[in-house]
């Protein structure tokens, strides 16, 4: 369970998150909203890239904001990025291993097994020893997911992981995302503009708009909430 309380982020005159109070119950959770709603800002706060002006985030009774930025991955907060940020000069195996050796425990042998398991899980075993710069954008997306789930993460933040993927690959990605909580015990928070992916993966969803929480609850209910529809298509009265 991830408890966010009165979280506010300010960039100059812009309030990117405005007193957001929200509890992610665990499992696969969606986080949706129009562009500029504050979804990635929330991820950046959780990753330690952005310091909020107020509020707190508690995970398993630990205040996340008290943990140094680079220690959060080791503590269990992992993520992907909207723009793929794999290490181009390293192999697929080394990319995933880099995260494991800095953010997870284990001997050399355990590390190799763990990394190989994850690569098999996301379907990258065939390209294990290929240098990433030689691979497709599709492979890079799955490498990012593998990097986020290797070891024993507590929270996996997926920031538009399906961006640029064809439909059949999105289905494959959905299968992987659905399996992550069961495989790792982690809470997954999925940000994506593809509502079918969010519906396919997430039992519970929160909606942000202009830095404020609009709705939260079971995905099916939230997606039919009038306030959510208004946030996406615009409020006719406004």
């Amino acid at each position: 369970m991830i408890e966010i309380t009165d979280l506010s982020v300010q960039f100059g005159g812009v309030r990117s998150l405005d007193e957001v109070t929200l509890t992610f119950p665990g499992g696969n959770c969606g986080l949706i909203g129009p562009n500029g709603a504050g979804k990635t800002t929330l991820f950046n706060v959780m990753s330690g890239f952005v310091t909020p002006v107020a509020g707190r985030i508690r995970i398993d009774d630990v205040d996340l904001l008290d943990i140094a930025d680079y220690r959060r991955a080791r503590w269990g907060v992992r993520r992907t990025f909207q723009t793929v940020q794999t290490i181009e000069s390293l192999t697929v195996y080394e990319n995933v291993r880099t995260v494991h050796e800095h953010a997870a425990e284990g001997s050399r042998a355990e590390r190799q097994d763990s990394v190989d398991d994850v690569l098999a899980f996301v379907g990258l075993s065939d390209v294990r020893d290929k240098v990433v710069r030689t691979l497709s954008q599709r492979d890079r997306r799955f490498i990012e997911v593998a990097r986020a789930i290797v070891g024993e993460p507590k929270v996996v933040l997926l920031d538009e992981p399906a961006a640029g993927l064809p439909e059949e690959e999105t289905d494959h990605l959905a299968q992987i995302i659905r399996s992550v909580p069961e495989r790792t015990g982690a809470t997954v928070i999925l940000v994506d503009h593809d509502m079918s992916l969010v519906q396919a993966c997430c039992d519970w969803t929160a909606v942000l708009d202009f830095g404020r929480l609009v709705a939260a609850g079971p995905t099916a209910d939230v997606l039919h909430d009038e306030r959510v529809l208004a946030a996406y298509v615009g409020d006719e009265e406004a």
Binding site: S47, D69, A73, S89, T98, E101
Partner: peptide, 18 residues
């Protein structure tokens, strides 16, 4: 490997625990 990660993207390196 950590240096390659830092070179590629410092935010990504931080998110990897580096």
């Amino acid at each position: 490997r950590a240096w390659a990660s830092v070179h590629q993207s410092e935010p990504s390196a931080l998110a990897s625990g580096i």
